[in-house]
């Protein structure tokens, strides 16, 4: 399940993922960020993600590319410990701003 909300004032796109974050979310996840233009920053809320696999990591990279790679402003927020574990193994804290 993927939901999104765009704040026009701050130009921040919030994406909320629920349940398993895997290939089944691919289409919806991609649509949420390609549908909106003029986004300055992204906030990915992972509070309700129970599991995340390597294709989810791939989707995050896809978003990062879309948002300008090194210049991208993407924050992963409310990340639970199981998911942090997976992100850490992949060393994704070097690419994204991750907070619990």
């Amino acid at each position: 399940m993927v939901e999104s909300f765009f704040d026009k004032k701050t130009e921040c796109l919030t994406i909320l993922v629920k349940g398993r974050f895997d290939y089944s979310c691919h289409k919806m996840f991609k649509e949420t960020f390609t549908a909106v233009s003029k986004v300055k920053s992204y906030e990915i809320n992972l509070a309700e993600v129970s599991y995340l696999d390597s294709s989810a990591l791939g989707m995050l990279l896809l978003l990062r590319d879309h948002a300008g790679a090194e210049k991208a402003q993407i924050r992963l927020v409310h990340v639970n410990s199981a998911v942090i574990d997976i992100l850490k193994i992949a060393n994704f804290h070097r690419l994204f701003d991750i907070t619990e």
């Binding site: 390597s54 294709s55 990591l57 791939g58 989707m59 990279l61 896809l62 990062r64 590319d65 193994i89 992949a90 060393n91």
Partner: peptide, 28 residues
Amino acid sequence: PSNMFCSAAFIDIKVNNKSIEVWNGGLP
């Protein structure tokens, strides 16, 4: 494509000086 990558470990076994070198990128 940008959503694809390879998590990997590379191991170099050096027999001359009885040592190994390990590179780990994304594996447990």
